[in-house]
């Protein structure tokens, strides 16, 4: 059986492309619509970009998951960067996109079905998102 998960180290901007392409390929195995696939790719692009912009290195982990009678994709994005001091502020719309360095977190939250963020100053940030296949 083919692996139902991928882990992509993120160091440079070309890794952002690689992460969203590999995630899209994996998600294609479940019956996500093409607009959901575009949304997943965009969300992963934003999260991976945060690593390159703020943390310099981290990892994007994508896996296919099944729970009760639903199927979906789980994305865990972790970095060992400076951490986010004010998460509620980072989650505010406009805080990110108006600035030249966009966090894009509220947008990612809108694109996905669940969104969790943990951050510790000086240790790093972990974002966990899930998207389920609509039936």
């Amino acid at each position: 059986m083919v692996d139902d998960q991928v882990s992509i180290p993120i160091l440079t901007d070309s890794d952002i492309v690689s992460a969203r392409q590999q995630a899209r390929e994996l998600a294609k195995r479940f019956s996500f619509s093409s607009s959901e696939l575009a949304g997943i790719a965009a969300a992963i692009s934003e999260l991976a970009r945060n690593i390159v912009s703020y943390a310099t290195q981290g990892t994007v982990n994508v896996s296919l998951i099944e729970e009760a009678n639903k199927k979906g994709i789980l994305v865990i994005v972790e970095d060992q960067g400076p951490g986010i001091s004010d998460i509620p502020l980072a989650m505010q719309d406009g805080y990110s996109t108006s600035n030249s360095l966009g966090l894009g977190l509220p947008g990612v939250k809108r694109l996905m079905d669940s969104f969790e963020i943990q951050s510790e100053i000086g240790k790093g940030t972990t974002v966990i998102v899930k998207k389920w296949v609509l039936r």
Binding site: S35, A38, G39, A43, T97, P106, G107, R110, L111
Partner: peptide
């Protein structure tokens, strides 16, 4: 612009 790309952009607030 592909419709799926436009859809994701709008949701991201772009």
């Amino acid at each position: 612009m592909q419709p799926d790309v436009a859809f994701a952009m709008v949701q991201l607030g772009l």
